[in-house]
Design a protein around this nucleic acid. Structure first.
Lengths: 112, 112
DNA sequence: TTAAAAAATACAAATATGTCAATACATAAA
DNA sequence: TTTATGTATTGACATATTTGTATTTTTTAA
């Protein structure tokens, strides 16, 4: 996982920087992808078929989401036999999920 | 500005909670809206025409962005004469911008 | 009242995203 | 090799977002 250097914000962000930031946020802005990240946060290294089983989403959908998240560097993947193990490799994925949950209450969670 | 209560995450987030989170993130996931938030962070209460002048975006575009951000509760607005003053009212808007900038370097900023 | 300034809205065109089914690819085991 | 399992990719389609132009509303001041 990349190191999270504290941000020193001075001046205005360049348009290109804003665009990259927006692209990253856009990929996080999807309920199914947030669910995948939630699971990956808990289980660290997870093969696709497990994510399919846990979420109930179609395999193609899960695979597409994972690839998108990997493309922008939020996730990484490595092969283990037939499986592909996905991992969160950008701490922003987690901190944004936490941040967005700042206003979550008990009622936002499922209790088993 | 709402108080940011720390998030205690237990169990899985409900689908509806994920959907609300995704909706909020989606609105932040736009370079122009991020720029507006950046300016609002600095200047606190800003009328639309100032945002138009600072960004160079068309008035209708700025107005639409501001309304979208207000609809999900990230911004609030109050009238002062002919002007509408916009303010950030959800701290998540700021913390997500900060969070996304975790990996920003000097080169991401414009130096005047 | 009328005119001007500030902001919001409506609508259509262009673009981007999401979804689904089918298919292709990769690996391991028989 | 053949087969089975696990993933990735493709193409068609529906839906959503973005953007631009024009118009409308709201408010103040003449």
């Amino acid at each position: 996982m990349k190191k999270a250097t504290p941000c020193i914000r001075r001046g205005k962000l360049k348009v290109e920087s804003l665009e990259r930031a927006a692209e990253t946020l856009k990929l996080l802005a999807h309920p199914q992808r947030l669910r995948l990240i939630e699971i990956l946060e808990r289980d660290k290294e997870v093969p696709v078929h497990t994510l399919v089983a846990e979420t109930g989403f179609p395999q193609a959908v899960v695979s597409q989401h994972l690839n998108q998240l990997r493309r922008v560097g939020l996730l990484s993947a490595k092969r283990r036999g037939k499986e592909m193990l996905y991992t969160i490799c950008d701490p922003r994925a987690l901190s944004i999920l936490n941040c967005i949950c700042t206003h979550c209450s008990e009622g936002d969670f499922e209790h088993e």
